[in-house]
Design a protein around this nucleic acid. Sequence first.
DNA 1: CCTTGACTCTAACGTTACGTCAGAGTTGAA
DNA 2: TTCAACTCTGACGTAACGTTAGAGTCAAGG
Lengths: 253, 253
Amino acid sequence: MNKLYRVREFAELAGVTVRALHHYDRLGLLKPSRTQAGYRLYYLRDLERLEQIVALKFLGMPLKHIRMMFHRGTNGMSESLRMQRRVLEEKRRLLDSAIRAIEEAEKATVPGNRPDSAILKKIIEVIEMQDNMDWSKKYYSEEAQAKVEERKKLWSPENQERWTKEWTDLFRDVEAALGEDPASAKAQALAARWKKLVEGFTGGDPQITAGLGKMYQDRANWPANMQQRTEPFSNKKVWEFIQKAFATGKGTN
Amino acid sequence: MNKLYRVREFAELAGVTVRALHHYDRLGLLKPSRTQAGYRLYYLRDLERLEQIVALKFLGMPLKHIRMMFHRGTNGMSESLRMQRRVLEEKRRLLDSAIRAIEEAEKATVPGNRPDSAILKKIIEVIEMQDNMDWSKKYYSEEAQAKVEERKKLWSPENQERWTKEWTDLFRDVEAALGEDPASAKAQALAARWKKLVEGFTGGDPQITAGLGKMYQDRANWPANMQQRTEPFSNKKVWEFIQKAFATGKGTN
DNA sequence: CCTTGACTCTAACGTTACGTCAGAGTTGAA
DNA sequence: TTCAACTCTGACGTAACGTTAGAGTCAAGG
């Protein structure tokens, strides 16, 4: 008993490669004894250590951490594990979004069998939608977030496209009407269109509307690409005009 | 319009780092034009390309593949996506097992607040259990697999420990009794214990029993560590003795 | 015109966990 | 002794950039 193993044998015993054992040796994770000639010699008790290494590696721990844990005794294990779990869960979240993005794209692509380039667009849309959802979360209350999730289901890419177009058109029309009286019928009609589009997103929910307001106030801190994307809608005069139209509209209504 | 952007500006616009743009340039993924002095100049149309790169990267595609896809036109996109999805799903499977392993270990650790070294043992147990389940799958029919999954729920580590001990004890006892007559009362008692232990695992289910039989027949192909672990039970004489005991037992029963 | 601060360029090493040679020495059986 | 089978120590390669480092560029202010 107390058999001695040479690398190959020991590696197969544990289900790892010889190179890995070399590696762990160099990193100081598992240092076997040696023969005169320098051959590595492992004991069975080394197998336990190796199994621990493999296990922690399976959990995604970097070898450096593993070595530190062995070095400082196994204290703090449960602490490290909690941290590692959070890391893994975060990775899983990202993986899930990626998989969902592909699924959505495939789903939207199969029927028409459109040119592949369209798939890319679709994927970018999906990812950006997820990103935006993620990032805009902080402007909504907990309750509002749930409601936004609900409304999100109605957001097919076709709808999104139509919605973008309607906003663009409306904005252009308002810009053209900046000279008019905000109380005029024309201005009031534009205000009505505006209100309808907003409600198309908020569903008339005050909590969502409030979140939207906060988001707009904070637009200086939006990510660069969002600022880019909304840049066509940054004409302050348009917003002021609509404000006035609403105000007079309310007054006379 | 048709504004020209320098690296920093363009990078912020797209939400990537300057270094990344350098990298993509060198890899031939996105080659901007240059000023006389060699400064990179990006057009807005480059943004589209960059967004595609970022999107595919988000899906876990290696930059090499992305470049190939651009190079060979976007044909084969959906094919690549299907493959990528499978890759991601496999990764998710591994992540999930890792997370589950940590959860199990934490769950089993909190109550007793045992020394940290015990957590490692627990984790190794959990991982090995998952591994074994995974690997032994191929011996069971589809139906049997589902049933094994059911029975697996009863496999607390304490049970497993007790079970291992009982097998070890029984095996030792049989080895000591090899000289006896397989038809003797003593041998029959041992056979009964044996049968009970087997049923403890199979639940008396014939499909599971069949799978177990197949697995045993193929033990030459078991992974090295399983062979190691079951090596104490490899004494052929014991198995033959039990066979005979069962045979005579049936004859007289 | 010169300086200065803010940018930009390329080159090159660092990171992670080994895989994969390459060249040289060791073991054990025939 | 010889030869196949092992083992050893470098050392480069991988993926996607991060991070200096040294050097050149640009625009504004003095």
